[in-house]
Computed example of a mutant assay.
Amino acid sequence: MLTDKVCLVTGGAQGIGRCIVETFANQNAKHIFVCDMNLGAMADLEQQFPNVTALELNVCDRKHVSETITKIAEKYGTIDVLVNNAGITRDNLIENMTENDWDLVIDVNLKGVFNMTQAIAPLMMAAGSGSIITMSSVVGTDGNIGQTNYAATKAGVIAMTKSWSKEFSRKGAKVRANCVAPGFIETPMTVDLPEKVIDHMVTKTPLKRMGVAKDIANGVLFLASDNSSFITGQTLKIDGGLVI
C-alpha cells in the first residue's frame, strides 16, 4: 500500500507512533524516518527494518526541524507521508494547572505540528501530492475533565487540518490533510491507570474493550495510502463507539 512512498512519523519511539512505523515498514514503504527525542528507544527499529531511519528530533525546535527536512529532501526529493504523532499530556483541573503545563502542551502538541507541517507541506505541493495525518483525540472533539490544555491542542489540530486541506490543494496539488481521533487505547500512557478507571471506560465503549495501537495504525495506514485518495479535511474517530 505504501510502495515508493517516503514517510516521516514523529513520536515514533513507543506506543501508537511505534506501531505506525512498524505497520508502514511492513507495507513496503520506500523509507520511513521515525523521529523522537528518545533515540535509543528507536535503535531496534533500524535493526529490524532496513527501510527505517531513526532521527533524534524535538518538534518544538524550528531550526532543527528545518535542517532535518532539508537533508531528507536533498536525498529523496520529497516526503510523501507525514504523520504528526508526537504529543504529551500534563493533566490537571484548571484551577491547579500551571502556566508551564499549559505552555508545554501547547508547544509540543500544537506548535510542533505546525512546525513539521510548515516544513514539509511545500515539498508535497511542489511534488503535486502527499498525505498529512495528524493525531487528534476524542478529547479534542468532546472535551474531558482535567485536560483543558490537551483538549485545546487536539481541537486545534482539527481546525488546522481543515484549513490545510483547502490551502494545500490549491493550483491542482493533490495534498491531503486528515486527522485521526483515537479513543481509549492501550499505550504506555494508560498502563498505570487504576483498574476501576479502565473498567469504567470499557463499560462506556459500545464495543466493550480498549483499543490497541494496531487499531489506530491501520486507520493511519488507510489515510496515508492511495486508497483514501478522495478523502481530505476529515477526522476519523477510532474509539469503539465511545463518542457518537
Rank of each mutant, 00 (worst) to 15 (best):
Met1His: 14
Ala13Leu: 11
Ile16Tyr: 01
Arg18Trp: 08
Phe24Gln: 10
Ala25Glu: 06
Ala25Cys: 10
Asn28Asp: 11
Ile32Trp: 04
Ile32Ser: 09
Gly40Val: 05
Met42Cys: 13
Asp44Lys: 14
Gln48Arg: 14
Phe49Ala: 05
Pro50Asn: 13
Ala54Cys: 12
Glu56Tyr: 06
Asn58His: 02
Lys63Val: 15
Glu67Trp: 04
Ile69Gly: 01
Thr70Gln: 12
Thr70Val: 10
Lys71Arg: 15
Ile72Glu: 05
Glu74His: 13
Glu74Trp: 07
Ile79Tyr: 02
Asn84His: 06
Ala86Pro: 02
Gly87Ala: 09
Gly87Ser: 09
Asp91Gln: 00
Asp91Gly: 05
Leu93Thr: 15
Ile94Gly: 01
Asn96Ala: 14
Asn96Cys: 14
Thr98Ile: 14
Asn100Asp: 14
Asp101Ala: 13
Leu104Glu: 12
Leu104Arg: 12
Asp107Thr: 08
Phe114Ile: 14
Thr117Tyr: 01
Ala119Phe: 04
Ala121Arg: 12
Ala121His: 12
Pro122Phe: 04
Leu123Val: 04
Ala126Asn: 12
Gly130Arg: 06
Ile132Gln: 00
Ile133Glu: 08
Met135Ala: 04
Ser136Asp: 05
Val139Leu: 03
Thr141Ile: 12
Gly143Met: 10
Ala151Thr: 08
Thr153His: 08
Thr153Tyr: 04
Lys154Leu: 06
Ala155Gly: 15
Gly156Gln: 12
Val157His: 03
Ile158Leu: 07
Glu167Pro: 10
Arg170Thr: 15
Lys171Arg: 13
Ala173Gln: 03
Ala173Val: 00
Lys174His: 15
Asn178His: 07
Cys179Asp: 06
Val180Pro: 00
Gly183Gln: 06
Glu186Lys: 14
Glu186His: 10
Lys196Ser: 10
His200Pro: 07
Met201Trp: 10
Thr205Pro: 06
Pro206Tyr: 03
Gly211His: 01
Gly211Val: 09
Lys214Gln: 15
Asp215His: 12
Ile216Leu: 01
Ala217Ile: 09
Ala217Leu: 13
Ser225Gly: 02
Asp226Ile: 05
Ser228Trp: 08
Ser228Met: 03
Ser229Ile: 07
Ile231Val: 15
Ile238His: 06
Asp239Lys: 03
